[in-house]
């Protein structure tokens, strides 16, 4: 037993021989995470010596990490809050935002639901508990199961700001902690309504029009669709031109980057 322990410690110490390579640390939002993942995977192939790590904990943590200088790039699904910005500047960090892509937040229902079109006011009433049955909005007589993302996600914040107009949701609203879970809940529940990022639309759920506009890549890119938001990458100051951080933060401008953004289910900013 004692010998094993000693052996393990020796093993641990021998593994301390560190080979220094150029590193790039990315931390932050779970929503922007997939884009960072895809970019990182591509960069890893192009620059084999580069050590890229991607962490997905949340936008708030991304901001905190940038303030503490624990990461090179903070991915965020919302803009920095005033407090975070102030903390950053006080700590000698000057956050610069790069908009990497757009994301649309799309209300979804079960495919058996005949409702096709809702106004923002109707959706708001559903989430505030004023409309409780699908028959009130032209659907079958079926109680509405209201599903929302957790109150701290960027997706929620977008929905809360743009659809709910910052009004509070009813107490009976069910909260799920991820887009896949919201998707899975709506897929398996006949009376459900939920909302997910545009990348999560597929044939097992039905997207509904908001104020007569169908959520699609085209309507989001052209700014017609009302519930869309930018996705950010924050750096400390504008990165030195030609540095790896600079390459990473501007990768979304290249054709390859846009293809990857699209492949991950988001809307690239400029058409290629």
């Amino acid at each position: 037993m004692r010998r094993t322990v000693v052996g393990m410690i020796v093993l641990g110490l021998t593994m301390c021989v560190v080979a220094q390579a150029e590193t790039l640390q990315i931390e932050g939002s779970t929503t922007v995470g997939p884009i960072a993942d895809a970019f990182a995977e591509y960069f890893k192939k192009v620059y084999p010596d580069l050590d890229i790590t991607v962490k997905k904990t949340g936008s708030g943590d991304g901001a905190a990490a940038l303030v503490d200088d624990r990461c090179d790039i903070a991915t965020m699904s919302r803009f920095m809050k005033a407090k975070e910005f102030k903390a950053a500047v006080d700590g000698g960090v000057f956050p610069v935002a790069h908009v990497a892509a757009m994301d649309g937040v799309c209300p979804i229902v079960h495919p058996s639901n005949p409702v096709k079109d809702l106004t923002t006011a109707q959706i708001r009433d559903i989430y505030m508990g004023k409309i409780k049955n699908w028959s009130q909005v032209g659907g079958p007589s079926m109680p509405i199961v209201v599903i929302s993302r957790d109150t701290s996600s960027g997706t929620y914040e977008t929905f809360h700001g743009l659809v709910m107009e910052k009004k509070e949701m009813a107490a009976g609203v069910e909260y799920v902690n991820s887009n896949p879970q919201a998707h899975a809940r709506v897929k398996t529940t006949r009376g459900a309504i939920g909302y997910v990022g545009i990348g999560f639309l597929d044939r097992s759920v039905k997207a509904i029009k908001v104020d007569g506009v169908m959520p699609s890549r085209r309507t989001i890119a052209s700014g017609v669709y009302p519930v869309a938001r930018p996705l950010f990458m924050f750096t400390n100051g504008y990165p030195e031109l030609g540095s790896m951080v600079h390459k990473f933060c501007t990768f979304y401008l290249t054709e390859k980057g846009q293809e990857l953004v699209e492949a991950k289910g988001f809307v690239p900013l400029t058409a290629y």
């Binding site: 904990t57 949340g58 708030g60 901001a63 303030v67 407090k83 701290s152 009976g172």
Partner: peptide, 24 residues
């Protein structure tokens, strides 16, 4: 019915709550 617990609230909201806010 769905309910929410204290631990779930901490786990779910901690990641996105801004540092130094009253939420955190």
């Amino acid at each position: 019915q769905s309910i929410r617990t204290m631990t779930a609230t901490i786990a779910g909201e901690m990641g996105e709550a801004p540092e130094g806010s009253s939420h955190r």
